[in-house]
Design a protein around this nucleic acid. Structure first.
Length: 104
DNA sequence: CCTCTGACTTAAG
DNA sequence: CCTTAAGCCAGAG
């Protein structure tokens, strides 16, 4: 199904709700927003994520996106996110969305 | 209508 | 820990 504006707004809201010092993954956001693939989340951040805490969204393995990894790591370190060898310790820093995914 | 690319993920070698 | 392959959706050419 084509991604709706509501879905995009949902994704933006979810990312905005991630508190400082915590992080989430593309997959988690996609699932919470009801999207079928994390690539859509990446697309949203790329085209309309300048005003969002995009640096709190990392890949599933705990590493930032290669293209922005320096800036992302800098932001995360600044917020006190546990990082070891350029890898985020999601076990401690992962954020859990209270708002459940909408039923199909 | 085609192919390519991308701030992704999981599985397999 | 490394690289491939396949699946996935949206946009650009």
């Amino acid at each position: 199904m084509k991604t709706t504006d509501a879905q995009v707004e949902h994704v933006r809201a979810l990312i905005s709700s991630v508190p400082p010092g915590r992080v989430t993954t593309y997959g988690a956001v996609a699932e919470a927003a009801g999207l079928s693939t994390p690539r859509t989340v990446a697309w949203i951040l790329r085209v309309d994520g300048a005003d969002l805490p995009w640096f709190r969204v990392i890949r599933a393995d705990g590493r930032p996106a290669p293209q922005v990894r320096e800036r992302q790591l800098a932001h995360l370190r600044d917020e006190g996110v546990p990082i070891v060898d350029d890898r985020v310790q999601m076990r401690r820093a992962r954020h859990v969305f209270d708002d459940p995914a909408p039923p199909a």
